[in-house]
């Protein structure tokens, strides 16, 4: 009976872990700031709580570094992680397949294609506040998603296999088109590749202020359909027999999950494996009930990406590794482990 209480317990634990990692991440970097000072600075930045701490003897430069450079990046990476993991949960549930991830239906290839075109413009058009790459990759991701969706929906019904196949087909075509463009723009090659590897280097509060509310809203909307998603894992027909409006629910979840993934990809590039693996880790801990899995995986996604991004800043400091490399290097062994387990029919 304590499903609700269990959810709250897990969420509290995860938020505590998240706060600890935020403090650690904010203290790490070229300018050394102690954990205690970092904590004080962060508290002092929160409206309403700033009266609690004495911010008199803080170094102004440290405050500036943390509030304008480190925190935007930290919160952006948390929300990208949240976005990837939550859309991963939905895709795995919808496709009834633990190998699904936010990019299965071509969001990544669409975003990459958009980003490439954006980079072309960027080199000729002058600087805009939010980069053309971001806008173009968002357009690319959304356009691909809707195209794939339009191809595979027949009279309101979406065939999962058709969705996967058209996603794969369109991804392949878009990747080739991306390569084709890069043939003639070889000086942009490095930038595109760096973008494709995923990264949060260009983080800003502005990006965060667009991403966070959108992703939060989309997660809240889709969150109301988690009981339905549980039942859809029995198959569409069985779900309908139990009273689920299968087609409508699938449509809502597909659209929200794709939007969430597209938002994440447009600000951070393609960061693999977070969306695949976080739901799996959480499923091992909290069980398969989507009602618990969804919120806990979302927060865990934030933790995973924040930790990976912090690692990417630290490992070869002062150089940075694209965070996609860190998530993949940790992610691939875990993925293989899952494959072996699946082969042994644990799932």
């Amino acid at each position: 009976m304590g499903a609700g209480r269990r959810t709250i317990k897990f969420i509290i634990i995860l938020i505590v872990i998240l706060i600890l990692i935020i403090i650690i991440a904010a203290s790490i970097g070229a300018a050394k700031v102690s954990l205690k000072e970092t904590s004080i600075i962060i508290i002092s930045l929160i409206p309403g709580l700033n009266a609690l701490v004495d911010s008199e003897d803080l170094n102004l430069q440290d405050i500036a570094v943390i509030s304008t450079i480190r925190l935007p990046r930290i919160f952006l990476s948390i929300f990208v992680g949240i976005a990837l993991a939550s859309s991963g949960v939905i895709f795995q549930g919808l496709f009834r397949n633990p190998m699904a991830d936010p990019f299965v239906i071509g969001v990544s290839a669409g975003a990459a294609f958009g980003a490439t075109i954006g980079l072309l413009f960027n080199s000729t058009v002058s600087f805009i506040n939010i980069s053309t790459t971001t806008i173009f990759s968002l357009i690319g991701a959304l356009a691909t998603t809707f195209l794939v969706y339009a191809i595979s929906s027949i009279r309101g019904k979406v065939a999962v296999i058709t969705l996967l196949l058209s996603g794969i087909a369109l991804s392949a075509m878009l990747s080739s088109m991306t390569s084709f463009i890069l043939m003639f723009q070889s000086h942009d090659l490095a930038r595109v590749i760096f973008w494709l590897m995923g990264g949060l280097t260009s983080a800003s509060w502005y990006k965060f202020s667009i991403l966070a509310p959108t992703v939060t809203l989309l997660i809240m909307v889709s969150g109301f359909y988690m009981r339905d998603l549980n039942i859809i894992s029995l198959g569409d027909e069985r779900a309908s027999q139990l009273g689920v409006q299968t087609d409508k629910v699938k449509r809502i979840l597909l659209v929200t999950a794709s939007l969430i993934a597209a938002m994440a990809v447009s600000v951070s590039g393609i960061i693999g494996f977070v969306g695949l693996i976080t739901p799996h880790i959480m499923r091992l801990i909290v069980g398969p009930d989507q009602k618990i899995l969804y919120p806990t995986s979302a927060i865990a996604g934030g933790i995973v990406l924040l930790a990976s991004d912090t690692l990417s800043r630290v490992v070869l400091a002062p150089r940075e590794i694209p965070v996609g490399i860190i998530t993949s290097i940790v992610g691939v062994p875990f993925f293989l482990y899952l494959l072996i387990r699946t082969k042994r029919k644990v799932f």
Binding site: G93, L234, L242, G287, F347
Partner: peptide, 24 residues
């Protein structure tokens, strides 16, 4: 029936109550 994830027996039976539970 063949659920794709490892639900417990109780969780499975509870799914039968779906038509009585409001979304919110």
């Amino acid at each position: 029936t063949n659920p794709s994830f490892g639900f417990t027996v109780e969780e499975m039976v509870l799914m039968g109550r779906y038509p009585y539970i409001s979304r919110f």
